[in-house]
Each structure stands twice: as structure tokens, then as C-alpha cells.
């Protein structure tokens, strides 16, 4: 997968994004999962697997079909299956999503953008065993342990846990070996078009009003307009925004409090139409500094 910072976005907006160009040559964006989400998914998986084993053991004890000895053997067998094979099988069956990952809404994809090969899935999960489980089990399993060995194991665990935090694509060692990356499962949510809600509310903006702001401010305003204020504080913030905009664009008409929301909606619509048509004519205005920086405005 050719990865590069999404073009046209400032670096801080592009962080955590992974772009891939499919054969259709339209770059699409994946959002890398945060280490927190992955940790959550891993915890859920551990709870599910060991919870399942515990329930099975309790169920078997209750039926009394096995002796104590048999139960121990059974437990050893189950925990064996619940570790690497569980992760491999679930990622195979659900195409890169274990149960925990499904709940958190993340998935594994291959860095080359093709289907996950079984080899990749096996490799990344075997490495997980080495990175996390074995040190953990050894650390908690041994009753007496050399302080050096304990320290070395702890250092190893901390180091492997820190790898995804510092790696550029949030990959852990297993991901690097397998050539995979964990991304948020894209969740398309189609929100209503704000420009359609703002029909004829009686404000007319002229070119000099609309020349001030750029794309970034427009989309910030969009984010504000997506959440109509419910509390008095929120209403106050919206009012501040509206008055600031009115002053900044030197809109000379009076703006009573009751009409501020309409003002913003209408301003959004006309600003967007204006910017979009400027954009079509090759005049891209990234933000309010467009006149100063590019000299294109």
C-alpha cells in the first residue's frame, strides 16, 4: 500500500490517517486505531476467552462428569486452544476481526491493500504470544524468580507494549513482521446537508463578506452547526461565534439573539457556495490566511 500523508491537509489534521490508492485511483482514507482502542479490544478478547474457559470448567464441575484430574487436563487443553488458535481462527473467519475487535469496531487490514492472507494472520498472532502472553504468564506463573529474569521480562514487556505507541503506523512487532495494520472499521454516517436547511432566512452576504474565511473555518462552523445548542452555556457560545463572525466580516446589520442561529446557517450556506465556486475556478482557500500566504485570494 502506498502510504503518504493525505494531500491538502495540514500535518496535524493528517495524523493517524492512512491513505491507499485503489485501482480506481481515487485515494481512500483509513483511520489508524488508537493504542487505547487496541488495548481495549485485547482486554475484551482475554475476558471473553478466559471467561469462556471458566464457564466451561464450572459447567463441567457442576455436571460432575470429570474427576479433578480430568478437569485439570481439560483446562490445560482449553487454554491452549483459547490462545493463539482463537485469535487466528477468529481473524480468519471474520476477516481480521476478533470478537473484541468487533465490539470496539476495529479491524486488521493488509498493508498492501489486498486480502489478509492466512500467513499474515498466523504470523501476527504468533508474535503476539511472544510479545505479550509468554512474558506475562512467566511473570505471574513463577513463584520464585530471579530478580534479573523478572526485570528482563518486565523490560521486554514494557518495550513491546511501547512499540505501537512510537511506530508510525501504530504497528506492534507482529504487525511489522506480517505487514498488517489495525484501522478503525470505517463507519459511514450520512448526516443531513446543512446547506439544504438554510433556505431563505433573509440574510444576504456580499462578496466582501465572504472573502474573509477559508475552508478550515467553514468546516469548523459546520461542526458547530451540527450540534444545536441545548444548554444556556452552549447558546452563549453560539452567540459568541455569531457575533464574532458578524464583526469579522463587517456585516453591518443588527443581529438580535433570536436570529443568531439562522444567521449562522445562512452564512454557512452562502460561504460554502462562494468558496466552492472559487475552488472550481482554481482559487483554493485553505484558511483565513489565504490572502496573506498564497497570494491566490
Amino acid at each position: 500500500m502506498k502510504t503518504y500523508a493525505p494531500t491538502g491537509l495540514p500535518a496535524w489534521e493528517a495524523r493517524g490517517l492512512l491513505r491507499h490508492t485503489p485501482p480506481e485511483s481515487v485515494p481512500i482514507t483509513f483511520r489508524l486505531s488508537t493504542p487505547g482502542a487496541r488495548f481495549g479490544a485485547q482486554t475484551l478478547d482475554i475476558l471473553i476467552t478466559y471467561g469462556g474457559v471458566l464457564l466451561a470448567i464450572i459447567g463441567l464441575t457442576w455436571t460432575g462428569a470429570f474427576s479433578w484430574n480430568g478437569l485439570i487436563t481439560f483446562y490445560a487443553l482449553l487454554t491452549f486452544f483459547m490462545r493463539v488458535p482463537y485469535y487466528i481462527l477468529s481473524e480468519l473467519v471474520w476477516n481480521g476481526r476478533t470478537l473484541g475487535k468487533r465490539m470496539v469496531g476495529i479491524r486488521v487490514i493488509s498493508l498492501d491493500g489486498r486480502r489478509l492472507t492466512p500467513h499474515q494472520i498466523v504470523a501476527r498472532n504468533l508474535m503476539k504470544e511472544v510479545e505479550v502472553f509468554l512474558p506475562l504468564a512467566t511473570l505471574f506463573g513463577a513463584s520464585t524468580m530471579d530478580i534479573w529474569l523478572g526485570g528482563a521480562l518486565s523490560a521486554w514487556m514494557i518495550a513491546t507494549l511501547l512499540v505501537p505507541v512510537f511506530s508510525k503506523l501504530n504497528q506492534r512487532l507482529g504487525d511489522m513482521v506480517a505487514g498488517t495494520v489495525v484501522v478503525d472499521n470505517p463507519r459511514p454516517v450520512l448526516l443531513p446537508d446543512l446547506s439544504a436547511q438554510a433556505a431563505a432566512r433573509g440574510y444576504e452576504f456580499r462578496a466582501e463578506h465572504l472573502d474573509i474565511y477559508g475552508r478550515y473555518e467553514l468546516q469548523t462552523l459546520e461542526a458547530i452547526l451540527r450540534e444545536p445548542p441545548k444548554s444556556p452555556e452552549a447558546r452563549k457560545r453560539v452567540s459568541e461565534v455569531a457575533q464574532t463572525i458578524r464583526k469579522r466580516i463587517s456585516y453591518d446589520e443588527d443581529l438580535p439573539e433570536s436570529r443568531e442561529w439562522d444567521f449562522l446557517l445562512e452564512f454557512y450556506r452562502q460561504q460554502r457556495e462562494y468558496l466552492e465556486s472559487r475552488h472550481l475556478f482554481g482559487d483554493a482557500r485553505e484558511n483565513k490566511f489565504h490572502a496573506a500566504t498564497g497570494g491566490q485570494g
Partner: peptide, 13 residues
Amino acid sequence: CARAYLVVYAPQE
């Protein structure tokens, strides 16, 4: 598109 891409180009084995 990202989701559709995964279904079209990275289907399950």
C-alpha cells in the same frame, strides 16, 4: 468507499 474497497478487493478467504 473504504468499506466498499475492503469488501471488493479484500474479501474473506
